[in-house]
Design a protein around this nucleic acid. Sequence first.
DNA 1: TGTATGATCGCCT
DNA 2: GGCGATCATACAG
Length: 188
Amino acid sequence: MPRIDFRAPSAELARALVGASLFVEGVGGRIVETEAYDESDPASHSFAGKTARNAVMFGPPGRAYVYRSYGIHWCLNFVCLAEGHGAGVLIRALEPTAGIERMRERRGLPDERLLCSGPGRLCQALGVTHAMNGLRLDRAPFRVVPRADDASIAVAAGTRIGISKSRDLAWRFALAGSRFLSKPLRLP
DNA sequence: TGTATGATCGCCT
DNA sequence: GGCGATCATACAG
């Protein structure tokens, strides 16, 4: 059932992506943490309208929106139902399954638990940069694999991280009990 | 386990 | 000028 539908509202897509797998040139793993953002949400980049930075969020769904965070890190979003509004899902953490040595080289830190536990770390480990902004997610270098139909997966919802607006919205989704989360889940 | 700080860039919502 | 959808490091206790 969880065929990934990039036209779904961001919270739905964010939930469906937990347990799916993401690879960039074969390096990646299982998504264990996501956050939803949309145009009605003051914490979203799309809230205040289209700019050069967030333009991809306003384009067709199923693309990568990569932005620079704090002037230093890259963060990866999956664009969903945009149609002039602007919505997306921030990929916050992966459980590494493929290309772990490559990740270690890129990260410089050996700790496997910290390779992809956070949106900036994950992009560094997978080699995601601004060069991939706007690229389709169903083509190389990306590969997104839905979780298996029979996968009995416990997805928990909590409040989002690192934002000051709309802090009570339970739009953070995580694989319950995973040790690869960027932070423990906080219930609303 | 927690709090503080620096790095450094795009946009000011 | 100030603030982020961050992270590594330094330090206190």
